[in-house]
C-alpha cells in the first residue's frame, strides 16, 4: 500500500465522519464544521490523484493541486457566509437548533 492509497482511505473515512455530523447535528454551526470535514476529505481525493500522477519529474500532478487550492478558497467563503448567516439568524431571534421545517406564516411584503 502506498501512502497515497492510505491517505485516500483516510479521505473516505473523513467523508464518512463528516457526513455523519452533517446529517445528525442539529445545530447549524456544527453542520458547517461537518461540511468542512467532508470538504477536507474531498480535497484529499484530489491530493491522492495528484500524488499518484507524479510523473515527468514533478512531485505531483499540479492540476489537481491547483483545484484543491481553488476548492479551499471556495469552502472558506462558504463557511464565512454560512457563519455570518447563522449569527444574523440568531440575532433575529430564531432558534438555531433545527426544529421541524418552517412554514412561514406571513410572506407578504
Amino acid at each position: 500500500m502506498t501512502p497515497a492509497t492510505l491517505y485516500g482511505l483516510c479521505a473516505a473515512a473523513l467523508v464518512a465522519i463528516g457526513l455523519f455530523g452533517l446529517i445528525l447535528h442539529p445545530s447549524p454551526l456544527r453542520k458547517v464544521i461537518s461540511f468542512n470535514l467532508v470538504g477536507s476529505g474531498t480535497f484529499l481525493f484530489f491530493g491522492v490523484a495528484a500524488r499518484r500522477g507524479a510523473v515527468a519529474g514533478f512531485l505531483g500532478d499540479p492540476v489537481p493541486q491547483a483545484m484543491v487550492i481553488t476548492g479551499i478558497v471556495v469552502a472558506f467563503a462558504a463557511t464565512a457566509l454560512a457563519v455570518a448567516l447563522l449569527l444574523r439568524m440568531l440575532e433575529s431571534g430564531a432558534p438555531t437548533v433545527d426544529g421541524p421545517p418552517e412554514q412561514p406564516d406571513d410572506l407578504s411584503p
Binding site: L22, I23, L24, P26, K31, D98, P100, P101
Partner: peptide
C-alpha cells in the same frame, strides 16, 4: 412532507 423536509431525513 414535513417529515421528509426535516434535515436529518433529507440529508440521509
Amino acid at each position: 412532507d414535513i417529515w421528509l423536509r426535516r434535515w436529518p431525513v433529507a440529508s440521509m
